[in-house]
């Protein structure tokens, strides 16, 4: 079985959601991850808070936040176990992140540390 990372991409990280909306998303995300974990397919994952976010550029220029010229941001990721990329894509389809127009979930296979990849 392979591991895949599902990366949550938000089209516009500067949008501010209401606390009620955030609470709904939180629950949906917890239920979604719980559903994957109930199939014993969850490996790890975390949210990535925007507070204190920095971007380090070429020549060691540091800017605040992932925003600025790039609007797209990464809001978090989870790593799942799946037999194929198709199975991992099915997991990704359930992500509440996708309810936001323009948002996406990137699915990437994790390289195994066996020297083959």
């Amino acid at each position: 079985m392979d591991e895949f990372i599902l990366i949550f991409r938000h089209e516009d990280g500067t949008k501010v959601a209401s606390p009620e909306q955030i609470e709904v998303w939180m629950k949906q995300t917890m239920d979604w991850i719980g559903g994957i974990a109930a199939q014993n397919k969850f490996s790890s994952g975390t949210g990535l808070p925007f507070d204190d976010a920095k971007v380090v550029w070429h020549n060691n220029v540091v800017t605040n936040g992932p925003f600025g010229e790039i609007k797209e941001t990464i809001g978090g990721y989870i790593i799942v176990k799946a037999n194929s990329v198709e199975e991992a894509v099915e997991f990704a389809k359930g992500s509440p992140v996708l309810q936001g127009d323009g948002n996406s979930v990137e699915v990437r296979r994790i390289a195994k540390r066996d020297g083959v990849d």
Binding site: K27, M30, D31, I33, G34, A37, A38, Q39, N40, F42
Partner: peptide, 24 residues
């Protein structure tokens, strides 16, 4: 439900998966 969601992430077991689904 939320407790089972968390439990399954750190310690999967079939019985926890079934109980989680009942709570759902």
């Amino acid at each position: 439900l939320q407790l089972y969601n968390r439990l399954l992430q750190i310690a999967y077991s079939p019985i926890a998966a079934l109980n989680r689904t009942f709570a759902l």
